[in-house]
């Protein structure tokens, strides 16, 4: 299991388009991807989980990946969030 703490920097936060990009990217990996936010575990592969979590710009989150390709999954997740989903 690998993890990293991050801050959301894009203005929209984890809204429709970023969440779509994120879940589409994470769907490629066999590892479980969890976003820890506000004391809750959010399934990083599920749009329907991420959107109502209301993760906004400035929120502190932790990405946890667990599985065979956890390192690759975490690296891509971190890259997407750190570059603000290209906004």
């Amino acid at each position: 299991m690998v993890s990293k703490q991050l801050t959301i920097i894009n203005a929209q936060g984890f809204h429709m388009r970023p969440a779509q990009m994120f879940t589409a990217a994470m769907g490629k990996y066999s590892s479980d991807v969890t976003i820890k936010f506000n004391g809750k575990d959010v399934n990083g592969k599920s749009l329907l989980n991420i959107i109502p979590a209301c993760i906004k710009c400035g929120s502190n989150i932790e990405i946890v990946c667990n599985g065979a390709d956890e390192n690759e999954a975490l690296a891509e997740a971190v890259a997407m969030i750190e570059n603000g989903f290209g906004e």
């Binding site: 388009r17 879940t23 399934n43 599920s46 749009l47 329907l48 989980n49």
Partner: peptide, 16 residues
């Protein structure tokens, strides 16, 4: 168009 395409993302959602 992107909003419409988002509907595909939702229906493919594992939670769904």
């Amino acid at each position: 168009a992107e909003i419409m395409e988002g509907h595909i993302g939702i229906i493919n959602d594992p939670g769904m």
